[in-house]
């Protein structure tokens, strides 16, 4: 069976047709850096449709996966085909990884218009897997017009996501105090939208207020119930529109950073 997937042109064709097995296999081949994978990718890069790409970052446990699960559901209702890349850290010692982001998204597993892929960093720094940008291209070629990327979320050095996603959402949990201060110099600095998740938490209001003094777009969300998700969708759309206006042709950080320093 695996043989059907062999041969870069055949593989590229099947990816274009949106065949899930081919999409999955090509990402694997790219992770392994096989020549066949690169050939297929080259074929796919020509006149490939462009997708919206949103990065979701934030400390472990803040609720990134749960927020993404809600975003997937919302974008599906809006008729998008959604691709998700969920990245977790590989152990530097053994090279192994426990990839558990999917647990929060398993209700999407049966939707033929949703593709979720868990990726391990395999030693790559910066909060993403080395294959992430190539995987985005594959998903674009396969017709997933909305792509969500969940970063590792270990804090500092997660800046790579801004190179890949025009819109970066940072998810924070309420009541972090000192941690929020630390994040301002790292995670939050690159974010275009800050989501204070766990809006059902008693400290949520205070955290929202503190951050609003400092950042333009701060939203309160309760990912477990979906409260605040429509506002988040609107904020993402608004930001992507701004990016378009600025005719950002290459994927990059817009000149006008959303962060009001000070």
């Amino acid at each position: 069976m695996a043989n059907d997937l062999n041969g870069a042109p055949a593989l590229a064709k099947r990816v274009r047709e949106g065949q899930v097995r081919a999409v999955a296999r090509l990402i694997t081949l790219l992770e392994r850096r096989t020549p066949e994978g690169h050939d297929a990718l080259r074929l796919l890069q020509e006149d490939r449709p462009r997708s919206m790409v949103v990065g979701v970052t934030g400390y472990p446990g803040a609720g990134k996966s749960t927020v993404i699960d809600q975003l997937v559901a919302a974008y599906r209702r809006l008729g998008h085909r959604v691709g998700v890349l969920a990245i977790d850290m590989s152990s530097p010692v053994t090279g192994g990884a426990l990839l558990g982001d999917r647990i929060r998204m398993q209700r999407q597993a049966m939707d033929p218009h949703v593709y979720i892929r868990s990726l391990a960093t395999r030693g790559h720094q910066g909060g993403l897997a080395a294959v992430t940008s190539e995987a985005v291209l594959v998903l674009e070629a396969a017709g997933y017009d909305m792509i969500l990327i969940e970063t590792v979320g270990v804090g500092q050095g997660e800046v790579e996501i801004v190179k890949m996603a025009p819109t970066v959402v940072a998810v924070v949990a309420p009541g972090l105090g000192d941690e929020v201060q630390a994040m301002k110099a790292g995670l939050l600095e690159v974010a275009h939208i800050i989501v204070v998740n766990k809006g059902d938490h008693p400290e949520a209001d205070r955290t929202v207020r503190e951050l609003r003094d400092w950042h333009r777009t701060v939203l309160r969300v309760t990912a477990t119930t979906g409260e605040g998700i429509p506002e988040l969708i609107a904020a993402i759309a608004e930001h992507q529109r701004l990016c378009d206006l600025e005719t950002v042709t290459t994927r990059g950080h817009p000149e006008d950073s959303a962060v009001m320093r000070g």
Binding site: S90, G96, L98, L99, G100, R102, I103, Q106, A109, M110
Partner: peptide
Amino acid sequence: ALRDAGMEVIYTGLHQTPEQ
């Protein structure tokens, strides 16, 4: 144990259907 043996483990949680 599989992670500690160097594998990438995708854990899906409880109550999965065969379809999932």
